[in-house]
Simulated assay, not measured.
Amino acid sequence: MHIELKGRKAIVTGSTAGIGRAIAEGMARAGAAVVINGRTQERVDTALREIRALLPEAELTGVVADVATAQGCAVLFEQAPNADILVNNAGTAFLNNFFDQNDNEWLELFQLNVMSGVRAARHYVPKMMERGWGRVVFVSSESGLNIPKEMIDYGVTKAATLAVSRGLAELVAGTGVTVNAVVPGPTNSEILSNWMKATAQEQGITQEEAEQQFLKTTRPTSLINRFATTEEVANMVIYACSEQASATTGAALRVDGGVVRSIV
């Protein structure tokens, strides 16, 4: 299968590192013009420079905007007013104690993990519907299905992302726009990889040993018995944004290594 996205403009929020960065690179490899988004000029410039070094002919632009805020989203929309493909990837997670958290911590995470995607979809999707073609992907997590006790807030936001994705797919039915969610499992993204590095240093073990320990204690249902790569997650996103995926919409596409014990 050859995926061709030439002539399409893709916006990937939170795309300076991790899964978002792999998605942006995959989009560029497929020929899309890609908007790289991050919160700092340094991070955006670094991502642009590194991807251009790999793909000299890629059409790339950068937008510095904190999409966790309405003001930041407005900056993104002003600098990149239109898109054929929208990947709502921006998000984060923090280990925490449910009983110690305050309201602001919950609301701040919700703003980034949920409302960034809501605002972006509200802006870009109507124009996709007018043109009769569009692709929207929300990057969720298996934590939205298996709520982690050490990150209940994160699990709630990722469950909300699944709900927004499905509801929006229902709303745009028959317009030529598809909306899907991608559900990664443990992945060597920037955040989780940094956690594993810190754990390894604290315990005097290798990062691979730390990852195996994590899987055995918190994700024992993994069928691949390893962390996924960011590229493996990105591959699913790229497919969902392709012409070949035109009959795939309203779905939660799992790239979780079999962590979720469900046949559907």
Rank of each mutant, 00 (worst) to 15 (best):
M151S: 14
G155P: 08
V156N: 06
K158E: 02
A159T: 14
A160N: 03
L162Q: 09
A163Q: 10
V164K: 01
S165H: 01
R166V: 04
R166P: 01
L168C: 02
A169F: 12
A169Q: 11
A169C: 08
E170C: 11
E170K: 13
E170M: 12
L171S: 13
L171F: 15
V172M: 11
V172C: 10
V172P: 13
G174R: 13
G176F: 10
V177H: 10
N180D: 00
A181S: 08
A181D: 00
V182K: 00
V182W: 00
V182F: 00
P184K: 04
P186V: 12
N188Y: 15
S189A: 13
S189R: 07
E190Q: 12
I191M: 15
I191S: 06
I191F: 14
I191L: 15
L192G: 08
L192H: 12
N194F: 09
K197A: 08
A198T: 13
T199E: 05
A200P: 01
Q201H: 08
I205L: 09
Q207M: 14
E209I: 08
E209G: 04
A210E: 08
E211T: 07
E211G: 05
E211P: 06
Q212L: 13
F214D: 06
F214R: 03
T217R: 12
T217S: 14
P220Q: 01
T221W: 03
S222Q: 05
S222V: 02
L223G: 10
L223P: 06
I224C: 05
R226C: 10
R226M: 14
